[in-house]
Nucleic acid binder design. Sequence first.
DNA 1: ACCAGTCAAGGAAGC
DNA 2: GCTTCCTTGACTGGT
Length: 305
Amino acid sequence: MIRFGLCCISLKLKEQGLSHQTMTYKRFSSLPREEALKILGERIQNNLMVTNETIKFCAENNYVYRVSSDIFPLITYDEANVSLEDLPNYDEIQDEFDNIQSTISNSTVRVTCHPSEFNVLASSNQKAVDKTITELNFYSSFFDRIGLPADYSSPMNMHIHNKNGSHYEIIDRFMTNFKRLDENCRNRLVIENDDKLNCWSVAELITFFHNKTNIPITFDYLHHKCHPNGLDEESAIKMCHNTWHGYKPLFHYSESRPGNNPRAHADYAEIPFETYGLDFDLDMELKAKDLAIEKYEQICKGILV
DNA sequence: ACCAGTCAAGGAAGC
DNA sequence: GCTTCCTTGACTGGT
């Protein structure tokens, strides 16, 4: 059965006052360190509480959930030099990890993540690669701490997002750096097709990347529409579906926001998607978040049985 | 109370 | 070899 996925935020919960908080390095470094750590700790604790409530919300609605990439501001930021253990409310933060673990184990919510586009494993900039590895390992260790399996049922999704060199050079760089990741992180990592022309299409990911690495490919409907590279939707999604080693794939759906940029995401989706007889989960990348899912479920009645 | 500007990141594109 | 744009939601500071 296909389930829809909520990405990061519920607008219904936001209305009730539950929202994420952040802290910039500029702000952090302008305060005395003790005060800065206190504020940062409180915000991280809040973000974990909100994450827990959002997972409960997904459990009630039978959604899968993509956790926010901004739960832990500054924690992997070199200049800030902070680890969770430095925060004065570290014990309370550990309690929140336990609460999340308990919520997940008492439900069937599938939990996933999509680190930001600034994580580039195939970059030729060594510093960017090092930061990426730190960030991915940290998020994977977070997944470990909340009891998620180290396999593709809790995928960590990324783009290649680099075209510096030939396909082979980029894949070589990717694999060299991939091998430096923690094992649990490697076992969760999946790669998504890009929406920009002359970046990585499904056709290229299958032909060049998957065949060499065996890493699953995430199919994104809108990205494929923007950058089909000669491949029709049905062939593309079926090829991607075949790369998941028997795990239920997690794909992405969105529609273009009216305007000049077809890659921009709409508030709501209006066109039923094609399943082509396949089973998968589907993250809904729409600005109106859970409100959009609710509306789209009505539109898709009949194909979701 | 509200609104505009700021923040953080890597890469691509355009001078 | 610069600057600007892309993207995101929340913070920040000025009215």
